[in-house]
Design a protein around this nucleic acid. Structure first.
Lengths: 156, 156
DNA sequence: CATATAATTGAGATTACGTCTCAATTAATA
DNA sequence: TATTAATTGAGACGTAATCTCAATTATATG
């Protein structure tokens, strides 16, 4: 697992220690679905029979973010969500308001336009986050929503 | 103020009451900068000499959202931010990580591409949110960040 | 206009989520 | 193996937001 090495490297660079707790958390993160929240992470650790305190879990996440293995994603229903990014290309999300499904998509054209806009404004981007909330195909059908209807964003 | 009528209408449709508290909160929202958080809203109400309980303020915001007068925006520094949308065209945001400044921008091309992507996936969009975090022109200069540097999003 | 009724309010308790403190432990290094 | 600074866990704490419930009030109706 190369993510592990990246993490070790990051820790070493900062004179931080690669502790068993950090190792376990890293493994849990890599064994979870790429989108997860703290709750799910703690569940996973429990299943792995690792008793790691809440504080440690919370303390470790910023380290994983700093080492570019995960990032924060959409806040959905007020809970912070994380997402493994190691080995993934950047992408954006659609979230279904009915079933909660997350659809990833990537559109280079959108990314390019974002960059252009930043340049226009003299803004130095660090991170962007695009989330579209709505209804996935299946749920839209159940709700008889017409995907082709024009009025999508309220105009006033 | 037409926003008021829209709110009244919404309330009536649901058999909800247009109480003085709701009226005051609505007025406060419309007298604030278009981006605000609960803290600022409460301050405003205080200045208006309206003593309205926290619970009522919290209870009213979802009503204003439901009636399309405001929406939730970027969570910045863990606090939920709201934004008045009544009478505004949809737009997106850049947030400066150093000074907190919010820059609004609108790019129809990006919006169009989003719509196209939704259509591709059969996704019925309700709301989208694009936030770019980074450094505004002034802060980028102070930090000597090069806006034209290529490596903006980490690619792996 | 008076009444009935369901919605609303405020105060404070409660929850949810995350952070902090500090003594005891431990990884890394030499 | 000893040294030392980083780390851990338990529980206290902080803050934002929600809930409870008795008292109040906006609205519809006769």
């Amino acid at each position: 697992m190369k993510g592990k090495d990246k993490f070790k490297q990051y820790l070493k660079n900062r004179n931080l220690k690669f502790t068993p707790e950090r190792k376990d958390i890293l493994e849990a993160v890599f064994s979870l679905n790429s989108h997860f929240d703290i709750e799910q992470l703690q569940q996973k650790l429990k299943k792995m029979n690792k008793k790691i305190s809440r504080a440690t879990v919370y303390r470790t996440l910023p380290l994983l973010i700093e080492s570019n293995l995960i990032k924060e994603t959409l806040h959905c229903q007020s809970r912070v969500k994380y997402e493994r990014i190691y080995g993934h290309l950047p992408h954006d999300h659609m979230v279904c308001l009915r079933c909660g499904k997350i659809i990833e998509f990537r559109n280079e054209e959108i990314e390019k336009l974002q960059m252009d806009t930043c340049r226009d404004k003299g803004f130095f981007p660090v991170e962007h986050r695009l989330g579209i909330k709505g209804y996935c195909k299946e749920c839209a059908e159940k709700l008889k929503l017409d995907i082709n209807s024009k009025k999508v964003y309220s105009k006033k």
